[in-house]
Design a protein around this nucleic acid. Structure first.
Lengths: 254, 254
DNA sequence: GGATGTGAAATCATTCACAGCC
DNA sequence: GGCTGTGAATGATTTCACATCC
């Protein structure tokens, strides 16, 4: 998704699958924990367990980065930490602005893991003049009028939107116009952006609704097991492995 | 393995793909907005645009739910709202507990869209005795000692974890032991749960790292595009496999 | 012996393209 | 004429299983 650029990769082999990219931060976190405990090497099996994936997937993921392991031994923890950090672009510091300093924006500003690795909160921005100058997480809030100037002065390319839904698209437009090309959106709304700009969204209510779906399915299966099921429970045999994602029918009368 | 017979052509089997489930909340939100504007019907094209997906995907998604549209016309907004709500399990109210009432937990408690549709904050729980009784978002915080009792008394099956990373797994274990079967985890850590329990995670730093990866890639392409000159390819050192040599310093942990 | 790296197979998801109905 | 619903084609991701190397 997003993307649009179908340009051929000039240097070849930089084509890491999106699904793999999304797991690299997980591996990095697990590796960092091992590193802090001075563990020198780790096997794909152990690391996979720590990251919550299976080992075949992890090995395949790493194979896209290169051959960084040693057969019969495993992976060098420090070396892998460096390679993944580099791949993710964390060997440089990314200045980030957070727009919308309400409850959520303030919580994000205070979030420690933020500044710790690769990211730096360059500015907090809010539309409320009453907020201006007030320090949040030790950083004074600036007024939205300054947005463009802040982006340019700090060379910000990543913006976090934590405004109410109604303000998100206008804020997004201004961020993009000022040069931001990656946006993390916490507002419960779909953002429209030009090609070349990446948007990722974090949406509480979507996550809850997905959980509710599965929760309902579980409840339905339970009921069916109790032997009520008049309807379609007929073709429910279908097995299902023990995977965390079960499957199959949940019957619901209308 | 068992079965494997998954290519059932059946017209209405209840096996909705996970990817589709994840988009239903998006459709629902767009439809709710249309409903509030009293729009009676909508085409797949229009709705897809509002939800930020393409229309073929949307139609395919809806086809898993049933044939709820009218050829030549489109979908009845109210009817679809109801069908999707029902499919997601939102025609009932899910009591939810939030554990860990720091900055983030408080922000979540205050999040409006929470209570609005299908979910109800049954309790706020924190381990800090000083928090006990303090109202957050109009709800008094209760002490962690009460956790099991609260879960049981309210029939809570969905829990939200907003504690520091270190507390997340123990809290998770207690929630699960008390009967919670769906967890939304905001703590930056991998949770281990028994089969039958669903976990979804929301992780700021993972999202930022994914953005950084793409951001870095963009910067690289840009450089390559304008730089013209003979860049990296100059060396004979084949690409991919085999990393070190070139530009890889020893190690640089932090 | 032990664990990586990777083709090949299996599974899952998206997109195409058009028949079928209004 | 317009738009849905869906097989078939294509693409992406996961899993298998084993040759390969330390």
């Amino acid at each position: 998704m997003a993307t649009g650029r179908t340009h051929r990769p000039a240097t070849r082999s930089r084509g890491i699958p999106e699904a793999t990219v999304a797991r690299l931060p997980l591996y990095l976190r697990a590796l960092t924990a091992l590193s802090e405990r001075s563990v020198p090497t780790v096997s794909s099996e152990e690391l996979a367990a720590a990251a919550g994936v299976n080992s075949a997937k992890l090995r395949k993921d790493f194979s896209y980065l290169g051959s960084y392991g040693t057969r019969g031994v495993g992976y060098d923890v420090e070396y892998l930490v460096y390679q993944i950090s580099r791949e993710l672009g964390l060997t440089q510091d990314w200045p980030v602005v957070i727009v919308g300093i309400g409850n959520l924006g303030a919580a994000l500003a205070n979030y420690g893991g933020f500044a710790s690795r690769g990211f730096r909160v360059a500015a907090l921005i809010d539309a409320d003049p009453a907020m201006a100058g007030k320090p949040v997480a030790g950083i004074p809030v600036q007024h939205a009028d300054e947005l463009e100037k802040i982006i340019e002065d700090n060379g910000v390319s990543i913006g976090v939107i934590a405004t109410p839904a109604g303000a998100a698209q206008p804020v997004c437009d201004r961020l993009v116009a000022a040069g931001v090309t990656s946006i993390l959106n916490f507002a419960p709304t779909v953002l429209t952006v030009p090609d070349g700009v990446d948007v990722r969204k974090v949406d509480l209510s979507i996550e809850l609704q997905i959980l509710a779906f599965h929760e309902q399915r579980k409840a339905g299966e339970e009921r069916a097991a109790e032997g009520t099921g008049p309807t379609a429970a007929t073709r429910g045999k279908e097995s299902a492995k023990q995977g965390p994602d079960g499957d199959v029918p949940a019957v619901m009368p209308a």
